[in-house]
Nucleic acid binder design. Structure first.
Length: 325
DNA sequence: TAAGGATGTATAC
DNA sequence: TATACCTCCTTAC
């Protein structure tokens, strides 16, 4: 799934374009028909992200709770008052790029970037035409929310449900502090992490210890902090754990602002002023196994790759065996 | 055209 | 630890 920064962007998008507007809610696919009926005709009053969970609370107290899982994605479109028409979800490309259509103005259509697969794909719906009205739903459109000025379609989510206030609290109580929450308590992360003997590489993926970190941020922050992912979390000093937290605050904040994950410092992208053009330089270790480490310059040592990939907790774990020894 | 994989997590054994 | 969920893009044939 998109990691936490994408969900925070999503929450901001809903805050800007849906909160305060009466919403027509439907489930073209049918799998969310009951939930849509509960929300139809109501007005969103608050849009929140906690880790990878999205909560949209309506004027009658019900909350739409969406978790995008591995494949979920939202697509947006709207008229000129609907500021950002974009797709937020699983882009399935290195670097976590969202599909942007900054303007729905037919006079200034965005050129096709050559990778848009086919009509009806996320992002295409609003290309080059006024998009106050949504396109024909596909057989996978789980939810469609429409206001006077725009629309949002959801496909592929692993969780899509309507919760009561108590149920929202219950879900949130199972989530650890979120580095993207200005009110979050770093000490709480340190306390929770230092209680476990599990590998720090696994602990960073545990949403009850720290919320919003996914496979890319885990690999990248452990590299940047020069920590071997296999070390038991308990063996890390408070300073090391705080270092991870502070680095995640920084990296995830960049992700929110830029809509992509970029973890490399400019000095580690020699001759590459804009990381956008070089997805292979946006991360230090994620999906860079066998390539030359951007920091230590090692490609292989004693016949083995410097940047290696292995499995940890059923996910691919990337690290530089030289830097993170 | 088919197979495989992906930023995730819940559930069962 | 393995599988199911569920979508679609990339790579292989």
């Amino acid at each position: 799934m998109p990691e936490g920064h994408s969900i925070h962007r999503l929450a901001r998008q809903f805050q800007d374009t849906f909160v305060g507007q009466s919403v027509r809610a439907t489930s073209p696919q049918g799998r969310f028909a009951e939930g849509a009926a509960l929300l139809d005709g109501h007005v969103p009053v608050e849009s929140i992200a906690h880790g990878k969970h999205f909560f949209l609370t309506f004027d009658h107290g019900h909350t739409l709770n969406v978790h995008l899982g591995m494949y979920g994605a939202w697509t947006f479109g709207g008229d000129h008052t609907f500021t950002v028409a974009s797709s937020i979800g699983a882009p399935r490309r290195i670097g976590e790029r969202e599909i942007h259509r900054e303007s729905a103005d037919p006079a200034h259509p965005r050129p096709d970037d050559g990778r848009s697969p086919s009509a009806g794909a996320p992002g295409d719906a609003v290309a080059g035409r006024a998009a106050a009205e949504p396109p024909e739903p596909t057989p996978t459109t789980r939810v469609r929310l429409v206001t006077q000025h725009g629309w949002a379609d959801l496909v592929g989510a692993s969780i899509c449900r309507v919760l009561t206030p108590d149920e929202v609290e219950q879900v949130r109580s199972n989530l650890g502090p979120d580095p993207l929450d200005p009110q979050a308590d770093a000490g709480e992360f340190v306390r929770r992490a230092s209680r476990t003997g599990r590998a720090i590489g696994a602990v960073l993926m545990d949403q009850s210890i720290i919320a919003g970190v996914g496979n890319i941020f885990r690999a990248e922050t452990l590299f940047r902090q020069l920590i071997d992912p296999h070390r038991p979390a308990r063996s890390l000093s408070d300073q090391e754990l705080r270092g991870l937290w502070e680095d995640l605050v920084l990296l995830m904040g960049i992700g929110v602002r830029r809509g992509r994950i970029i973890t490399t410092a400019p000095e580690h992208r020699p001759g590459v002023p804009e990381a956008e053009a070089w997805p292979e330089h946006a991360t230090y270790v994620y999906q860079r196994q066998g390539q030359t480490c951007l920091v230590c310059g090692t490609t292989s040592r004693d016949g083995a790759d410097a940047i290696v990939v292995e499995e940890m907790v059923q996910r691919k774990l990337y690290r530089c065996a030289v830097c993170q020894a």
